[in-house]
Design a protein around this nucleic acid. Structure first.
Length: 336
DNA sequence: CACGCTAGGTAAATTTATGT
DNA sequence: ACATAAATTTACCTAGCGTG
């Protein structure tokens, strides 16, 4: 009764038939096979009949109460046994793999600041608690971070994002002010309150142009018509601090990188430099792995508590995305 | 007697129809 | 589009029958 339309009904369980057949061939008895399969004898008998009918071959020679494998039956048995074994071993094999998934790797994308100043303590905590879960830190700039999120190359990202695409969810967890960092003895170091104008014609040290901070500083200073000169462009906060310490110029840095161990003067900047928030980003709709959730819970206990873990939830009243109105730099650079 | 086969009934799975 | 209800199909069981 093979379907002339060629349509495959999944209820026509060929594997079940083959399993019944293989067991019968092995034991040389339908009843015996039925026992092993926890089925009734007729059930197995029917399975074999169906198989014979559908394949249009005879598998067993029925001679009274005895059955013997025909040559066709022998041939099919050799073909069928690996299939049945393969299917039946599937749960075990999957469990094997699932095990490695459970203690599976945690992939975190993060920018330099997060990697350097935010993640170490978190990671220490995480690894103390879950020593068997390996972690990979993907040190990426924000554009690469987005594509890593979109391609599911990472579980989530930690960082700060100026303009957020629709397909990525963000929740701020930390926020930091921006400060001016000066070498000791700099003429601004003794000043009570730093104004924006004070920055004019100072010799600035800034992080590279492709990083968010550069854009931010550039934006703020241009908007307020503060002329400035970049004396030195450096690769990161640590380098910037080192060069400020040695008197190459002054730097504008997010407080995230101020550890208190620096050998320099830190002055708060006027509030035109917005607080930057740092938090968690993930591809909208992504199912977060258990280990990812555990890590995020360490960052912010209760992160997943509110129903639906709404990505829209406001982060502790911070201004989370800095989008200056009417600025060309605020246009999101879409990568599609 | 031991074993496989057929029949008739039941529970579960699956599809179709219907409502929100 | 999704959820629920009704109808149909399928898988299986027990019981009884036939055969070497």
């Amino acid at each position: 009764m093979s379907d002339p339309s060629g349509r495959l009904y999944y209820k026509n369980n060929r594997v079940k038939q083959l399993r019944a057949f293989c067991y019968t061939a092995q034991t040389g008895s339908i009843s015996r096979a039925a026992e092993r399969l926890f089925l009734s004898q007729p059930s197995v008998s029917l399975q074999i009949q169906a198989l014979e009918r559908e394949l249009e071959i005879t598998l067993f020679e029925r001679r009274g109460p005895k059955i013997t494998l025909t040559p066709d039956g022998k041939a099919l048995y050799e073909l069928a046994l690996p299939l049945v074994d393969g299917i039946d071993a599937l749960p075990a094999r999957f469990a094997e793999r699932y095990q490695t998934l459970q203690s599976g790797r945690l992939d975190i994308a993060a920018g330099e600041s997060s990697t350097l100043y935010l993640i170490p303590d978190l990671l220490k905590n995480y690894m103390d608690r879950y020593p068997d879960s390996p972690v990979k830190l993907h040190n990426l700039v924000s554009a690469d971070m987005l594509s890593a999120l979109r391609n599911d190359e990472v579980d989530f990202a930690i960082g700060s994002m100026l303009d957020l695409p629709d397909d990525v969810a963000y929740r701020a967890v930390y926020s930091f002010d921006t400060s001016l960092i000066l070498p000791f003895g700099h003429h601004l170091a003794g000043k009570e309150r730093i104004e924006l104008d004070d920055l004019a014609s100072e010799e600035l040290i800034l992080p590279p142009k492709h990083l968010t901070t550069w854009r931010l500083v550039n934006l703020v200073l241009q908007q307020h018509n503060i002329p400035y000169e970049v004396r030195l462009e450096v690769g990161g906060w640590e380098i910037m601090k080192a060069y400020v310490e040695r008197g190459f110029g002054i730097g504008i840095a997010s407080n995230i990188c101020i550890t208190g161990r620096e050998d320099l003067v830190v002055k708060p900047l006027p509030s035109v430099f917005p607080r930057r928030t740092y938090g968690v980003m993930w591809r909208r709709g992504r199912f977060l792995s258990p280990q990812a959730k555990r890590f995020i819970e360490l960052m912010q206990p209760g992160f997943f508590d509110d129903p639906g873990a709404s990505p829209q939830a406001e982060p502790r009243g911070d201004n989370r995305v800095f989008v200056p109105s009417g600025s060309p730099a605020a246009k999101p650079q879409s990568s599609s």
